[in-house]
Write a protein that binds this DNA or RNA. Structure first.
Lengths: 344, 344
DNA sequence: AAGAATTATGCGATCGATTGCACATTGTCA
DNA sequence: TGACAATGTGCAATCGATCGCATAATTCTT
């Protein structure tokens, strides 16, 4: 008993400080709030601060939240925490939020809408002030839940087709154009595309970017297979299908680095060499893809900045609920490495 | 005004449900709590549940926390969210916590003790029920803050020298022994070690593991350089120093995959080939190291399971504050790939 | 049938910080 | 000097769920 009780003994409430300082707790509260301290006489402020320090007072964020209705908490929902792509995004979000005094409630929602919904409900019950979703499908039922609940929400990395909420995504169309132009510049004419899942904006937009860029170059943009998920295994399967359906390809533009790595595997399985037989371009510039063999030429996405931008957008909306919805595109950048070479 | 107000219009309090159902709010509370519903007549339970559903009621976790003193929130502090090693740990922690109805407050504490302390204070002010620290130094001032505040705390991935708190770490000594024994088995005799920072348990224990295993094999364990941080750049610098100080090495056991990758870079710079000239073993089995050239032989750590175990240990302690402090070792496993080969 | 035991529900204090309003004190100006 | 403003502080309601205790209703004993 004793040990547990004394361990939890966290006195130091506003009340206890006020008593010790001989003032009312509301006065103590004001003295400790930098924004209100000027309304209180300097001597009292000093006395209260000293007492707070002495007692090791820490304002109870929970009690404050209950009263004010704001928790200074933001929920962040990711589709897969283990996927290295999301760590830097999370990092960016966290950094921008911390700067503004907000904390992150992080949850892995998986790819299942029902589970994501359950998680979002849980976050809402915790009275998060806002949400960042990295899980959005092109038409996302989870977002509906968020909006219905009146919780300011921002999408990151993936967006919906229609702008119901602000979003920050990479400029997928442009990124894929850079990839295609690079390949075309190297002399490639028969270029295939490993597309991402249909339900995700990244999958669709990058595919559109591929098609547009191919047409712009006067090339046939029909060598496409769609992967069912962003994973190596699906990438390998899709590559196999692509190579079978469109023989004679000399280059592949993948919608995602993991798909590109799957392509590496399938090429190796068939005894083909990259880049000698087939050039490959990825998308994302995941950590370590500069050290694989061959180093992957890929489209770099500013993940951390994307996360930061999303958080800032959310913070703006929290400050002003009537802020415009805006869709922000982050610039994509082609990173040249060893997986592409000029057509012999 | 109107839009903001109506957007935030989240009625549905216990009170509103109770009124609509014609009962007292305490009755409604009990009817909605599975653990107490049996004390209430089935008809009332049904009526209340129906009403809750109709109004879209969600219990306010904040208000509940204030009253009960438990937030069902656990703070998780990481040294570097962008480091791919921590994502799976976080994933494991999150999964185990979610199962028990807890949520994660995630914060990147960096490597600076002052900043980590500030973050922990913030988490404590948010009344987290417990903390998971992945940042521990061998003697960690931040842990002192946690313990002084009476917040149950568990260390993960890195532990202190003395067991002030429960911890879950990989069996670093054994892992390094596996690496050395593998190299010795391949015929290597002149083996160097890239050690991690002195201040981290992983750095010291793996180094001890290296020394012990070398001595056990009757070999000289003095070819060691200590990296200042776990990064490729420091790994490259340390490798340069190691090769200069101990010419004739045929193998290197690194304390960490990033250090091993730094070694790759330095070998390449010197025109040496891995594994032909020098074999390299890493530690951690980070994502993608199976696809670099050459694929890295490394000691796999069960990151996700480590996170899960840490969370479970914390949950146990939350359930029973007098639970024993325990230091848990997760088994390490050698993964054979292409960066090591038999001495010619 | 009186009393005991059990069950169902209501009551109201409580957690700790916040904040609109009231009150008191002092200063200012005509 | 009387009316008025400015300033500093106290008062008490409030946020919403929880839970010990009280009370009412019901069933069980003997």
């Amino acid at each position: 008993m004793k040990s547990a009780a004394s361990a939890v003994a966290r006195g130091a409430t506003l009340q206890s400080i006020a008593e010790a300082a001989g003032v009312h707790r509301s006065t103590a509260a004001r003295a400790l709030d930098p924004a209100q301290a000027h309304r209180i006489s300097p001597e009292v402020v000093e006395k209260v601060r000293a007492e707070a320090l002495r007692q090791g007072y820490r304002r109870d964020a929970i009690a404050a939240s209950l009263r004010t209705g704001r928790s200074r908490l933001v929920g962040v929902v990711l589709p897969d925490l283990a996927n290295p792509v999301f760590a830097p995004i999370l990092d960016g979000v966290g950094a921008a939020l911390a700067e503004a005094g907000y904390s992150m409630l992080v949850a892995d929602g998986g790819t299942d809408a029902a589970r994501q919904t359950a998680i979002v409900e849980e976050l809402i019950a915790r009275r998060v002030d806002g949400l960042v979703l990295a899980t959005a499908r092109r038409s996302d039922s989870v977002l509906t839940v968020c909006l219905d609940a009146g919780v300011p929400t921002v999408l990151v990395n993936r967006a919906e087709d229609l702008p119901r909420a602000s979003s920050v995504v990479s400029d997928d169309i442009c990124g894929m154009r850079l990839a295609v132009e690079h390949l075309v510049g190297l002399g490639h004419r028969r270029i295939g595309h490993l597309a991402g899942p249909d339900g995700l904006s990244t999958g669709v937009l990058r595919r559109q970017g591929f098609e547009a860029a191919m047409r712009a170059a006067g090339l046939d943009p029909t060598a496409i297979t769609v992967a069912r998920a962003y994973s190596r295994a699906e990438g390998q399967a899709a590559t196999a299908a692509l190579l079978d359906a469109a023989p004679g390809l000399t280059a592949i533009a993948a919608s995602n680095d993991l798909l590109a790595l799957g392509a590496y595997l399938e090429l190796a399985r068939r005894g083909l060499s990259c880049p000698h037989d087939i050039s490959i371009v990825g998308h994302n510039d995941m950590p370590l893809v500069d050290m694989i063999a061959p180093p992957l030429t890929t489209v770099r996405i500013a993940h951390a900045q994307m996360g930061e931008a999303a958080a800032r957008l959310l913070l703006e909306r929290l400050a002003d609920p009537d802020a415009e919805i805006c869709a922000r595109l982050m610039p994509a950048q082609l990173i040249l490495r060893g997986s592409t070479q000029a057509l012999r």
